[in-house]
Design a protein around this nucleic acid. Structure first.
Lengths: 332, 332
DNA sequence: ATTAATTATGCAACCGGTTGCATTGAAGGA
DNA sequence: TCCTTCAATGCAACCGGTTGCATAATTAAT
């Protein structure tokens, strides 16, 4: 009973299945009478065309994918990430597409999920975090002419690489301005270990911070110790601040670094005198022992923009946007 | 170049495409020689069969879906939820399936996402939160013979309804035992507003709490005010505790309720003397102004069990498990 | 060496839609 | 009235696979 095909409908209406197909796709060369009859029958029998067959004929899947690193701490392990997904999902729904989500399990013997998705043409377009776009994946995407948009700025400036990201330079600048407005002059940035600082978004935050400090005639100081424990130790000794003094404020580049600070605070009550600031907005910040300043990053907007850009690529719109930068605003 | 079909491979190997298909599907009736030749050619040309065409022929999608309420605070808005998804994803990957995720946008004019997924047969099986299984959706699933598993215990005890959930009775019991072991005797449960308390998991937590209290000869007291503000007010006045006294510990049924408590704390420093406990483990708990006791809920396991159960339904295994309850353990 | 049994492969239909082209039928023009 | 034009519909091929059945090729048995 649930296996109604287009042929069944055609038989019931006494027409050829091609005619039914034309009704389904809004073809205009159909007489009013026939169309109404077919529509009535379809409705009566609650007919829904098989999406697989449709996909085969159209050579499309009407599905957009999101593939992320299985181990990517920035994606799912990030408690804010669902907001990006919400934004993506909204746009996908408006376009009457579906959302296929997967993590890129590495190939144990076979193909990786990423390879399978692209090679099997399981989606019409792909969203992926910057961490996932290496040269091999890029080549695969291009070979299969698969439209894609990167979530997070990518340093690979090759043809066809489009990304959507927060304006981290601006965010850091806003945050620094805010701390200055609060009367602070000795402001330090805690950027984490060396390998972390190679990330583009960290570099951008450092840049934004430095620019404002310089412009205001203040000394920019970035904690550059090899590992974070070392950083905290130096901080404890006063080396990170002005002339051996503790700084008045510390900007933590990630919430993990902020938590390190807070952990460390347990044994160093004097830290309570220092203003802390960071770039994410946990709803729980206001319950922290230590008040935190932060900028609001509109992740939902980021998802929306990324999905919107992807659709303009899928639909081969005349003039698709290039990469997009989302502005931020101060909240607290 | 990237549009290699089975026919191309057959031509290159000088065989019929049926033979290639048999090699693809591991059919044994193929001579060693022919198989090796075809496999070599497939590898050389990096041929990957079109999954859509395959799906049409098999009448399968090799995809499992997860559909959740768009507005469901318990799903995506829940910062723990990604762990469930991780668990699901792992099992799906092991089964060489794909994971289709969507929120159930309500029908504006057309069908809801849920209806589309089921009617178009876009997935071979569906996972969904208990909130999404109303009678209409149940009927639709049964009509289309779509296997499904509910995430979260469902009160609808109809045929074919299987769910996976945490053992909330046990979790509350463990938590209560813990507080008693800490020396507390006056322990109150904060269960939130009436409409919240109608949720099965809240009722279970109340039950587990009551059982232990009774068993230990202690008085179980549940804050039952119509709204949470009222509850806090009464609490403030001492009504919720023993004989007008403040309780020694409060078990908050959700993290939202815990946050309400913490918010309220600002104006009521005496709350600091009271132990707080709840059922979720934010990694950030340890940074809270107020220490919190909690049980560890293995959400990843929950996702794994749910997906595993779904696959045994999809594969029509002889004796699929009924609903599954995941045990919990105390952490702090 | 001949026939029977078995294995390997080809043929063609099928999954459920879409679409270019041919055909029918009705309306318009001379 | 006959011919042209165009809208409405049918026919059949196609999308890229799978599979039952028939046939060819090989092996085993007599």
């Amino acid at each position: 009973m649930s296996k109604l095909t287009i042929q069944n409908i055609a038989d019931l209406a006494g027409v050829n299945k091609a005619t039914v197909s034309r009704v389904l796709n809004g073809n205009t060369n159909i007489s009013e009478k026939t169309r109404l009859k077919i529509e009535k029958i379809m409705k009566e029998h609650n007919y829904v065309p098989n999406s697989i067959a449709r996909g085969l004929a159209f050579n499309k899947t009407f599905t957009v994918g999101f593939c992320f690193d299985y181990t990517d701490k920035k994606a799912f392990a990030n408690p804010f990430f669902y907001k990006v997904l919400q934004g993506i999902e909204d746009v996908i729904y408006d376009n009457e597409y579906l959302f296929l989500m997967m993590s890129d399990h590495d190939k144990k013997g076979g193909k990786s999920t990423f390879e399978r998705i692209v090679e099997e043409h399981r989606v019409d377009g792909l969203l992926l975090p910057d961490t996932l776009l290496n040269q091999a994946n890029y080549d695969l995407l291009m070979k299969h002419e698969m439209p894609f948009v990167i979530i997070g700025e990518h340093s690979l400036r090759q043809e066809g690489v489009r990304w959507v990201d927060v304006d981290n330079v601006q965010a850091a600048a806003i945050l620094t301005e805010r701390l200055i407005a609060l009367g602070h002059r000795s402001i330090v940035m805690y950027a984490g270990a060396a390998e972390v600082r190679r990330d583009k978004f960290i570099a951008d935050r450092m840049e934004g911070y430095k620019a404002v400090m310089e412009q205001r005639g203040l000394e920019a100081r970035i904690m550059e110790q090899a590992d974070s424990l070392g950083a905290l130790k130096a901080f404890e000794g006063g080396e990170a601040g002005d002339g051996g003094q503790n700084p008045e404020a510390v900007i933590c580049c990630t919430h993990e670094l902020l938590f390190e600070m807070l952990d460390w605070e347990h044994g160093n009550p004097m830290l309570k005198e220092i203003s802390l600031a960071t770039f994410d907005n946990y709803p729980m910040f206001r319950h922290l022992k230590h008040p935190v300043h932060y900028v609001e990053i509109d992740l939902e907007m980021m998802g929306k923009q990324a999905a919107g850009l992807l659709f303009s690529l899928i639909n081969k719109e005349a003039d698709p946007a290039q990469s997009i930068r989302i502005p931020t605003s101060i909240v607290n």
